[in-house]
């Protein structure tokens, strides 16, 4: 079994158990405001760090390339209130253009 299968199955099992746990345990956890606030912030910090790593990192190096151009286009599209598909297309076209023109 290769590492991609391990990641696929492992993450699937873990995420399913997390979903199921909510149906199986009593809901007293929700009364703790600190836990609620931290839980709201976890997607924010993880998604934001994923944006920066995926735009600028290659393994353990910082690399500025076509990907950053694509993400900046996505940022502008979102600022202009574009929908999700339009934003994705703007990112892909910009990145592909920079890559192909070899800048």
């Amino acid at each position: 079994m290769n590492t991609l299968w391990i990641a696929t199955i492992g993450a699937s099992v873990l995420c399913y158990l997390l979903k199921l746990s909510g149906f199986l345990i009593p809901n007293s956890l929700l009364s703790n405001p600190v836990l609620v606030r931290i839980n709201e912030l976890i997607p924010v910090v993880l998604l934001s760090s994923l944006v920066s790593i995926q735009s600028l990192a290659s393994k353990t190096e910082i690399v500025v390339d076509h990907r950053l151009g694509g993400v900046l286009a996505a940022f502008i599209a979102l600022r202009l209130r574009a929908s999700f598909p339009i934003m994705m297309i703007a990112a892909a076209i910009t990145s592909a253009f920079i890559y192909r023109s070899g800048i």
Binding site: L47, S48, L50, V51, Q54, S55, H66, R67, G69, G70, V71, A73, A74, F75, L78, M87, M88, A91, A92, T94, S95, A96
Partner: peptide, 8 residues
């Protein structure tokens, strides 16, 4: 670039 754009 689609992956970081999706995260954004």
């Amino acid at each position: 670039a689609a992956v970081p754009a999706a995260f954004l």
